[in-house]
Amino acid sequence: MPAWPVYTGTDEPHDGVAQLPDPPPWRAFDGGPVLPVPAEDDHDSPERRYRAATYRATRESVELVNAALVLRRPLLITGPPGSGKSSLPYAVARELQLGPVLRWNVTSRSTLQEGLYQYDPMLRLLAANRMARQNGLTQAAELPKADGSPAEDLRLGPLGTALLPYERPRVLLIDEMDKSDLDLPNDLLNVLEEGQYEIPELVRAAPHTPTVRLMVSGSRNHVEVSGGRVRCRAFPFIVLTSNGEREFPPAFLRRCVRLHLRMPEQAHLEEIVEAHLGELDTDARQMITSFLQRSSSGELATDQLLNAIYLTRIPGLEAPSRRELAETLMAHLGPVTEFDDY
C-alpha cells in the first residue's frame, strides 16, 4: 500500500499504518520500552463498534486524517451536532487496526491531571484484598500496613495512556473540548508538543521506588513506569471535537490539523442512511429531501433523520402518523432562520 493515504475511509480493516511515513524531525519521539497496541476488546460497547462500521467519510475528512497521522498532530474537528465528529476516530481505529479507542469526555471541571492520571482509592483496596487471598487471610485488614507507595492509588487517564510508548499510535477521542474550562486548551499545549509528561508523586518516590506498575485507562491491564516519566514513541492519533460554542487560543489552533464537518449533501446523506438502515425506499428518499430542505432554515442533526426513517419502517404505523412523527423528530435544534412550512 502506498504511504498516502494510510487511512482510506473504506470499511475494510488493513495494516496500512505500517506504511506510515517517518515523522517530521521535530515530531519524532523515542519513548520506551516499546509496548504492543492492545487487541480490539471483544467486550467493547456494541454501539462503538457499530459507529465505526457505519461511518462514511468525505474526501476532505480522509485527506485531513492522513495529514494528522503523517504530521503527528492532533485533529480538531468542528461542526454541528450529529455531523459525525465523534464517530470518525472509531472508524480510523477500526480500519487501521489500532485497538480500542480511548475516550476523554471533557466537562467544565476537567483538568489536565484528570486526563493524564487519576487517584483511585479502590485500587489500594483491590490490591490489599488480592494480597490477602494470596496469603490465605480472610480480609485485607489482617495484612500488615501497606508501605504507602503513591502508585497504589494511581491509574493512568485516557491521555496519559495514549502517550505510553506504543509501537503504533493509540486512538484518543477528547470529546467536546468547547465545554472545558478556559485554561484547559493552554494546559494541553506542552504535553501535546512534547509527547511526554511527569507524575510528580512518582518522580519524588523514584529514589526508593524507581519503577512502578500502573493500571491504564479502559482496561485492567498494567504497565511499568520508570522514574515517574512517560514519553510516547508513536504519537497517538488524537481527535478533539468541538460544537463551535467557543474560540480556542491561536497557540492551541496552530498545533492542530483542523477539519470542519458540514451538513452532508444529498448523495452523502443517502450513503449514511443506507449504511445504517439498508436499501432506501421511496419514503426514505422523500424524507431525506425534506430533511435537507428543513436544514436550510435551522439546525438539524443526522441522527434525527435516522430516527425518523427507522420509525417509518415499524409495522402498523399509518401514513399520517408516520408523517407527524417524522415532523416531530426532525424539529429544529435552535432558532429557525426563516419561515419553515411543516
Score class of each variant (00 low, 15 high):
157 G>V: 05
131 M>S: 13
184 L>Q: 04
181 D>A: 14
132 A>W: 02
150 P>G: 05
156 L>A: 06
104 W>K: 09
109 R>M: 13
129 N>G: 03
109 R>A: 15
109 R>F: 14
129 N>T: 07
131 M>G: 01
147 D>Y: 05
154 L>Y: 09
188 L>A: 10
137 L>G: 03
175 D>Y: 07
111 T>I: 07
180 S>D: 01
160 G>Y: 06
103 R>S: 07
176 E>A: 02
180 S>G: 02
124 R>K: 12
162 A>K: 02
165 P>H: 11
164 L>Q: 05
155 R>Y: 00
154 L>C: 08
107 T>Y: 00
185 P>Y: 04
106 V>E: 05
116 L>S: 05
165 P>E: 09
142 E>R: 10
198 E>M: 08
166 Y>F: 15
156 L>Q: 05
169 P>N: 02
123 L>F: 03
127 A>I: 00
198 E>N: 08
127 A>F: 00
114 E>T: 05
130 R>F: 10
140 A>T: 01
179 K>M: 13
142 E>Y: 06
99 G>W: 00
195 G>E: 11
103 R>E: 11
112 L>R: 02
120 D>W: 01
108 S>I: 13
152 E>D: 13
196 Q>S: 15
144 P>K: 06
131 M>L: 15
161 T>K: 02
127 A>W: 03
198 E>T: 15
130 R>G: 09
103 R>T: 14
167 E>L: 10
191 V>C: 08
131 M>K: 15
99 G>V: 00
180 S>C: 12
102 L>K: 01
181 D>P: 01
154 L>D: 07
139 Q>T: 14
176 E>H: 07
188 L>P: 02
118 Q>S: 11
144 P>L: 08
184 L>W: 00
153 D>C: 06
107 T>I: 09
170 R>A: 15
190 N>M: 09
187 D>F: 02
173 L>S: 10
198 E>Q: 14
137 L>D: 05
105 N>K: 01
131 M>F: 03
101 V>W: 09
130 R>Y: 09
101 V>F: 08
198 E>K: 13
154 L>P: 00
193 E>W: 10
164 L>P: 01
179 K>Y: 08
159 L>Y: 06
136 G>V: 12
184 L>V: 12
186 N>M: 06
182 L>Y: 07
130 R>K: 14
170 R>N: 06
138 T>I: 04
189 L>N: 10
180 S>H: 04
142 E>H: 13
168 R>G: 01
138 T>G: 02
176 E>D: 14
106 V>H: 04
122 M>F: 08
118 Q>E: 07
153 D>M: 12
168 R>M: 11
140 A>C: 05
120 D>A: 14
147 D>L: 10
138 T>L: 06
122 M>H: 12
161 T>V: 08
172 L>I: 12
152 E>K: 06
150 P>E: 10
106 V>W: 03
190 N>I: 04
105 N>M: 04
176 E>I: 10
168 R>E: 11
166 Y>A: 07
191 V>K: 02
102 L>P: 01
197 Y>V: 12
125 L>Y: 10
106 V>R: 00
134 Q>V: 07
125 L>W: 04
185 P>C: 02
180 S>R: 02
198 E>Y: 06
142 E>W: 04
158 P>G: 05
159 L>W: 04
195 G>T: 13
133 R>H: 02
118 Q>T: 12
183 D>E: 12
156 L>M: 04
101 V>L: 08
104 W>N: 07
152 E>Q: 14
134 Q>M: 14
144 P>S: 11
103 R>M: 11
119 Y>F: 13
